[in-house]
């Protein structure tokens, strides 16, 4: 615990505050994950952890390491930027997966797909492959999954 003693009080207070704030928000996010009823509600809960939950802890780490090494140590910001960019991708894909599965199974409470005419699919560029070759390289669509 030697490195913690060198931190002055005026810096220790904000570090502790950010730590408590970040970890509490992450914890609340998972409480929501357990507590909420429907999947689409639960989709909102982890964003608490990835927005201010991560930001608070990363800010605390930046402050502490910058003091300890006597220069601005900002590399934790890379984690923050990474989380910021990847969370929308994962949550969007998960939301679409859930929507797709609910629609395919005909569950209620999900808005139908926006109707628009089927895009006219041109013949695919098959090169020298004959239709039989194509048939053998491309197996038929997988049957409905057994997982729930």
């Amino acid at each position: 615990m030697t490195h913690l003693e060198t931190v002055p009080l005026w810096l220790a207070l904000p570090i502790a505050l950010f730590l408590v704030l970040g970890s509490t928000l992450t914890l609340l996010g998972t409480v929501g994950l357990v507590q909420l009823r429907s999947f689409y509600d639960r989709l909102h809960a982890p964003t608490l952890g990835t927005s201010w939950g991560a930001a608070g802890i990363i800010l605390a780490a930046i402050l502490l390491f910058s003091w300890m090494q006597g220069r601005p140590v900002l590399h934790e910001l890379v984690i923050g930027a990474f989380v910021m960019i990847t969370t929308p991708v994962t949550l969007m894909m998960l939301g679409r997966a859930a929507l797709h599965r609910d629609r395919a199974e005909g569950r209620g409470g999900v808005p139908a797909a926006v109707p628009h005419p089927d895009p006219s699919e041109g013949p695919p560029d098959v090169g020298a492959l004959s239709p039989e070759d194509l048939e053998s390289t491309r197996p038929p669509k997988a049957p409905p999954m057994a997982i729930r």
């Binding site: 009080l9 730590l19 970890s23 914890l27 998972t30 802890i57 502490l64």
Partner: peptide, 19 residues
Amino acid sequence: SATILSAALTYAQFALALA
């Protein structure tokens, strides 16, 4: 400050583990 920081770190570790 070491007391405050180590308390906050312990709390954060417990909260994240619980999460």
